[in-house]
């Protein structure tokens, strides 16, 4: 790929984006930072407390537990959704009526509001009245996600995979479409096997979309809130209490704006740091 030319006037092209996003980001963010370093006793008076909240949050065991659960969850769904999405994209027809059918059906889970997704699966997986729960129990499994932590996790993961794999698949499909025919033609003439074509033509050319897919799923799964809350409420116990659920419990349940704000910032920083690392790794060879 030929080198990009240096052109500082390109800033004009980027300006609308910066303004639009900046307006939404910078001002509100300052508000949050503000809260995070202050103490209030509810009477709208704030006292500057410095890093007390950050300190408290970072050292709490409860926070560590939620963080661990979160990391585990994210790791599992990434390991399932990315390969599955890519496999589906590779196997889908490229054109014709079946391609349209596939695309429309695949996109459906993505379009359902997240609270409905949670509610759907909530009923769907209930042992006595839901299709999944009832079938599993009929098949001999002792399955009750409201009581068994393992079942709760399995259901949560199944729900997320069901909900979001299509995102990866759609991105991968678009990425595959954008590979010019000439590459396939050259590979054909070079006598490459399907596996060689995948490894040397398709996968490299899908790098961009795969980076986007992985990072998107990483970020979103780290922030996931509505679906698990509606599905399990964080339970049984706190088996599925992921990071954002914990955060909201603290903020709303205890009206502790200070710790909550501090926690959200730490949360944000963790995502930022990990995403940055991911990003650097995946775009390494573009230097």
């Amino acid at each position: 790929m030929s080198a990009k030319t240096v052109n500082h006037r390109a800033w004009w092209l980027v300006l609308p984006v910066v303004l639009l996003v900046g307006f939404n980001a910078v001002i509100p963010l300052m508000t949050v930072v503000n809260y995070s370093v202050q103490e209030t006793f509810g009477n709208n008076r704030f006292f500057f407390e410095g890093v007390k909240w950050f300190d408290q949050v970072v050292h709490s065991a409860r926070f560590h537990d939620a963080l661990t659960r979160q990391m585990l969850f994210t790791a599992i769904i990434l390991a399932i959704e990315v390969p599955l999405g890519v496999a589906v994209a590779l196997a889908m027809p490229r054109k014709g009526v079946w391609a349209s059918v596939c695309l429309v059906l695949m996109s459906m889970p993505l379009l359902i509001p997240w609270n409905v997704v949670g509610a759907m699966w909530n009923i769907f997986a209930l042992p006595d009245i839901g299709l999944l729960g009832w079938t599993l129990n009929k098949l001999g499994f002792d399955y009750n996600y409201t009581r068994q932590p393992f079942a709760a996790w399995a259901t949560l993961i199944a729900m997320d995979v069901w909900h979001w794999t299509s995102l990866v698949a759609l991105l991968a499909y678009a990425g595959l479409s954008a590979i010019p025919d000439a590459y396939y033609q050259a590979a054909k003439i070079d006598g490459a096997s399907s596996w060689a074509v995948f490894r040397h033509v398709q996968l490299p050319k899908m790098k961009h979309v795969l980076t986007i897919a992985v990072l998107l799923r990483f970020m979103d799964s780290f922030m996931i809130y509505t679906e698990p809350v509606v599905l399990t409420g964080g339970g049984p116990g706190n088996a599925t209490t992921l990071l954002s659920i914990d955060l909201v419990k603290i903020a709303l349940g205890q009206f502790d704006l200070g710790p909550a704000a501090a926690m959200s910032l730490i949360y944000f920083l963790i995502i930022l740091l990990l995403s940055w690392m991911f990003y650097r790794v995946m775009t390494l060879d573009e230097e």
Partner: peptide
């Protein structure tokens, strides 16, 4: 990209 990483809850009140 980082703007996509902020949980909406953080921004709701502001």
């Amino acid at each position: 990209l980082s703007n996509r990483m902020a949980p909406a809850a953080v921004f709701a009140l502001p």
